[in-house]
Design a binder for these strands. Structure first.
Length: 179
DNA sequence: TCCAGGATGTTCT
DNA sequence: GAACATCCTGGAC
């Protein structure tokens, strides 16, 4: 998903777009940080079993977190979008989320969803459906070679030995909290 | 019905 | 770098 573009359509003309610069992977039953840990299905965690490309939003600390389901049906797993670089509709983003520093606009999972106006009404959308209000597409121009770095996930009490956080090295919109 | 706690963000110093 | 505002979910009872 790094380097792909998240597009939110707002009617005929208005569009919000951002390039994905930071993600985290959440696995299935074996991942203590995953909603699907131990295979437990609840009203919210059941979305982890949805088909790949399904939008999974989940509230934490009064913020919405945006995930995309990634594996095949019945295999729970998701990728959290932690940060994007604004590409289009910056004025609308600033209206949704007034900030002084430009990089504060979308440099965090809760910041990004607020700026994009993403909430529970987008739960279950298909990011691969061209008619969807929220889609993920290729970048209009293929970006210059980006270097991907990995690190441990942020805010996770019991992390796995694998480094499951991935980000575009050097991009200023990557959240910088230490893990 | 109640309560602890979290995939966070902001505002202090 | 640390405190706290925030608010929904799910497990306990």
């Amino acid at each position: 998903l790094l380097g792909k573009v998240i597009v939110r359509r707002l009617g005929a003309e208005k569009v919000l777009a951002g390039a994905v610069v930071e993600t985290e992977a959440y696995l299935g039953a074996s991942d203590p940080a995953s909603k699907a840990y131990l295979g437990k299905k609840t009203a919210t965690s059941k979305w982890m079993w949805a088909k790949a490309g399904t939008v999974f939003v989940y509230p934490v600390h009064g913020h919405w977190l945006f995930n995309v389901i990634t594996a095949r049906t019945n295999t729970p797993s998701a990728v959290l979008i932690r940060a994007v670089e604004p590409l289009a509709g910056v004025d609308i983003m600033r209206a949704n989320r007034p900030v002084s520093e430009p990089r504060e606009l979308t440099s965090g999972p809760g910041k990004f969803t607020r700026a994009f106006g993403i909430c529970e009404k987008h739960l279950g959308l298909d990011v691969c459906d061209p008619k969807s209000e929220l889609i993920i597409s290729d970048a209009p121009r293929q970006p210059a070679k980006v270097e991907v770095a990995s690190a441990h996930r942020i805010g996770v009490a019991q992390d796995l030995p694998e480094k499951l956080r991935f980000y575009v090295k050097g991009n200023v919109y990557v959240s910088r909290r230490s893990a």
